[in-house]
């Protein structure tokens, strides 16, 4: 892989946005995007978790799974690492940032099962990223996810006073908006392909 970590970082935000091109992490994206404030909080939490879990999983993969020749167990190990880390983060946030904890409330545990987080760890292995590239990719993906959920939350805020057909209200219109945003992001994809 010749691609530089710096380029990878920007590419992960814009040209191959984890949410808008891979459609990963949809559940929390749809359920928490009602308000800009909590979207911001969750987005930051996801970015934070992504940087650390990607780093931890990279270390686990290259210093534990590869030497023992048990790469096939990566799914289990990655999930355990992510789950433990999110749990730890939840304890930390509750203790030191109660306001953030209250605004995320029950949604924080959703990060554990956020497929974007798991997906980034798997992409990192498939695409053979080195440590620095992985962190850059993880951080970029997190910011990309944050960008996507912020845009949706902003648009949903505007939609609140608009007439939306009854059958499309809520998730329906959100998916349509996401589809249109994804189309727009396809426009970026030629600039820096990373696959």
């Amino acid at each position: 892989m010749e691609i530089s970590a710096f380029l990878l970082f920007w590419a992960a935000i814009f040209t191959s946005n984890i949410l808008l091109t891979n459609f990963l992490g949809m559940c929390s994206y749809l359920s928490v995007s009602k308000e800009v404030e909590s979207s911001m909080g969750l987005g930051i939490a996801v970015s934070f978790v992504l940087v650390f879990t990607t780093a931890l999983n990279w270390l686990a993969y290259h210093y534990l799974l590869v030497p023992f020749h048990i790469e096939y167990l990566q799914y289990i190990v990655f999930i355990i690492v992510i789950a433990a880390f999110v749990q730890l983060l939840e304890l930390l946030i509750e203790r030191f940032a109660p306001a953030l904890y209250y605004s995320l409330g029950i949604f924080l545990p959703l990060i554990t099962v956020n497929c974007a987080i798991f997906g980034v760890s798997l992409f990192m292995v498939i695409r053979n990223y080195n440590f620095l590239q992985s962190i850059a990719y993880g951080f970029g993906s997190g910011l990309g996810w944050l960008l996507a959920i912020l845009m949706l939350a902003g648009l949903r805020g505007k939609l609140r006073e608009k007439m939306v057909p009854a059958g499309l209200r809520g998730t329906g219109i959100s998916l349509i908006i996401t589809g249109i945003m994804a189309l727009a992001f396809v426009g970026f994809s030629g600039i820096a392909p990373i696959q």
Partner: peptide, 14 residues
Amino acid sequence: KDTGVITGVSGILA
């Protein structure tokens, strides 16, 4: 060996 590694990882994290 495989189960040992998994148990070790989860044990330490727990």
